Simulated scan of single mutants.
Amino acid sequence: MTSSHARRRWPAPAAAGVTVLLWASAFVSIRSAGEFYSPGALALGRLAAGSLVLVAVLLLTRTGWPPRAAWPGIAASGVLWFGVYMVALNWGEREVDAGTAAMVVNLGPVLITLLSAVWLGEGLPRPLLWGTAVAFTGAVVVGAATAGAQGASVLGVLLCLVAAVTYAVGVVLQKPALRHASALQVCAFGCLVGTVVCLPFAGWRTR
C-alpha cells in the first residue's frame, strides 16, 4: 500500500471514531440536562447550536445551496433523524437510565443494515452481519451493566425505540442525497431542517 493510498483511507475511520465518542457522551449529557429542560427545548437548543456552527462553516468554505435532487433526502433526514429522533431520545432518557437508552437506540445500526439492503440494494455481506452482531452485543452488555436497579420504564423504552427507528430510516434516506450534494451540505441543511421542526418547542425550558 502506498503512502498516498494510506492517507486517503484514514479520514473515514477517524471520522467514525470521533462520531462514536461524541455520540456516546451525548447519552450522559442528555440525561443530566433533562433535569432542567423539556425534551423539545433541549433538542431545539442542540440543533440551533449545531446549525450556527455548520452555517459558519458553510460561509467560510463558500459552500452553496444543495442541488434540488438532494433535497428529498435532506428534508427526510432533517425531520426524522435531527428532529423526531432527538426529541424522542431526550424524552426517553427522562424515563430510563443512559445505559438502557444506549442499548435500545443501538437497534438503529441493525435496522440500518436491513433497510439499506432492502431500499438501497446494498446486500448483506457476511462481514457486515458479523460486525452488526458484535456491535449490538456490546451495546447490550453495556446497557445491562449500567441499567438502574429500579428497572426501565415501558414508556422510556418505547420512546428510545422510536428514536432508533427514526434514526435508522433517516440515515438510510439521507444516503442517496450524498450522490448529489457534499457531506457538509447534507449535514448542515439537515440540521437546519431539524431546527425548524423543533421551533414550536421554543420557550419550553423546564420539565
Rank of each mutant, 00 (worst) to 15 (best):
G190W: 05
L178W: 10
C160S: 14
A188F: 01
A188M: 01
L184D: 07
A181H: 05
C198F: 00
A181K: 04
V186S: 01
A163F: 05
H180E: 09
A188G: 04
V162R: 04
A177E: 07
V165L: 15
L184K: 04
L199Y: 06
L161D: 09
A163W: 08
P176G: 03
F201A: 15
Q174C: 13
G194F: 01
G194K: 03
C187W: 04
L199N: 08
V162H: 06
C198A: 15
G170H: 11
L173V: 12
L161H: 08
Q185T: 06
A177P: 04
C160H: 08
Q185W: 03
V165K: 10
G190H: 11
G194I: 06
L192H: 00
L178F: 11
V171N: 15
Q174T: 09
F201I: 04
L173M: 14
S182Y: 12
G170W: 11
S182A: 14
Q185C: 08
A168V: 02
C198E: 11
A188T: 00
H180W: 02
L161I: 06
V171Q: 15
S182C: 11
V171C: 09
A177F: 01
L192S: 05
R179K: 14
A183Y: 00
F189R: 00
V169S: 12
A183P: 01
V196G: 13
C160T: 04
V197A: 13
Y167V: 05
L173D: 12
R179N: 14
Y167E: 13
F189P: 02
C160D: 14
V196S: 11
R179W: 04
R179C: 03
A177D: 08
Y167A: 15
A164M: 12
T195F: 01
L199C: 05
A181F: 06
A163N: 10
V162F: 04
V197Y: 06
V186Y: 00
A183R: 08
C198P: 00
A164Y: 09
L178P: 07
G170F: 12
V171H: 13
L161T: 14
V172S: 03
C198Y: 01
G194D: 12
L199H: 04
V171R: 08
F189S: 07
Q185R: 01
K175Y: 05
A181Q: 06
Y167R: 06
C191G: 07
L161G: 14
V165F: 10
G190Y: 07
L178R: 07
L199S: 13
A164Q: 10
V186M: 02
L159N: 05
L173P: 08
G170A: 12
H180F: 02
F189V: 06
L159K: 10
R179P: 02
A163L: 11
A177W: 01
L199A: 15
T166S: 15
H180M: 00
T166D: 10
V186Q: 00
T166P: 03
L184W: 03
A188V: 03
P176E: 02
Q174I: 06
A181L: 11
G170D: 13
L184M: 13
V196N: 13
L178D: 10
A163K: 07
A183T: 09
